[in-house]
């Protein structure tokens, strides 16, 4: 046995060194290297103002939101193994997730996580407003944040339909009914009656925005598929891109805000 400890021996192997290009983070050089050299950690600055790490100031609501988003992605992908977005199977599969699929709380984690994410996003916005962090130079990033908030609500809303129970379709019916009141674009909205050429009705229940959203006149199987695609692919992609922008701009706009 050499007098070096096993930990040190491991640290000196070629494999270890090929992965971690720095020593233990107990000095300035390595602390910088670990953050700069790791693809996940390099989202962070190497150093930041002390107020930026104080929970009392930041509440960590943004970070928590991102974490929940990641959890939702993971649980969501796992749920997709057992879920078929069709009128025949959607409900049965949800029952299966509860009754006999292993790790029976997967759906619960996903659902409650979705609710939690809405709350954390709101609180994040609240905090950012209260510390005036939208002020120059962060105006644009605030705007991105607002869009992300809207997308979070839409993610949650589109996922609400997928269990395909009474709660789901009627919540979506109530929610999507508002789309039919869109001025000029929904058949129940102001101006819809004006959009008519003779007998040819431009805005009716079979061609307005709600129809476009649902793929039908009411919440049926096409709507289920659409909401599934929106929920699992489209909105997450957009959110992912916007999150990248959001984080990038946090760094570029000077990190977490602090008194000038």
């Amino acid at each position: 046995m050499s007098d070096k400890s096993i930990v040190d021996q491991v640290r000196e192997t070629q494999v270890w060194k090929s992965i971690f290009r720095h020593g233990p983070p107990n000095n300035a050089r390595n602390r910088a290297a670990i953050v700069a050299g790791n693809v996940f950690l390099h989202l962070h600055p190497i150093k930041l103002k002390k107020s930026g790490v104080q929970l009392g100031y930041t509440w960590c609501m943004g970070g928590l939101t991102f974490f929940i988003f990641l959890s939702l992605t993971v649980t969501g992908v796992l749920l997709m193994f057992y879920y078929r977005p069709t009128a025949e199977y959607a409900f049965n599969d949800i029952v299966a997730l509860r009754e006999h699929v292993p790790l029976g709380i997967m759906r619960e984690i996903h659902r409650w996580g979705a609710h939690a994410m809405v709350i954390t996003v709101w609180l994040h916005m609240f905090r950012v407003f209260m510390t005036g962090s939208y002020k120059p130079p962060r105006e644009f990033n605030w705007g991105v944040g607002v869009i992300l908030l809207v997308l979070t609500l839409l993610l949650s809303f589109t996922g609400y339909l997928l269990p395909w129970d009474q709660l789901a379709i009627w919540a979506i019916t109530v929610g999507s009914n508002m789309a039919k009141a869109t001025p000029f674009l929904g058949h129940g909205g102001p101006g819809a009656t004006l959009a008519q050429i003779g007998d040819f009705i431009l805005v009716s229940d079979k061609n307005d925005v709600r129809f476009q959203l649902l793929g039908g006149r009411f919440v049926g199987e096409p709507a289920l598929l659409r909401f599934y695609i929106l929920h699992c692919v489209f909105i997450p992609l957009v959110v992912g891109v916007l999150i990248a922008i959001h984080f990038w701009r946090v760094r570029k706009d000077g990190g977490i805000s602090a008194p000038l």
Partner: peptide, 11 residues
């Protein structure tokens, strides 16, 4: 491990 188990359906 639970996730691993998750991929084996019970029925």
């Amino acid at each position: 491990g639970l996730v691993f188990r998750f991929l084996y359906p019970n029925v």
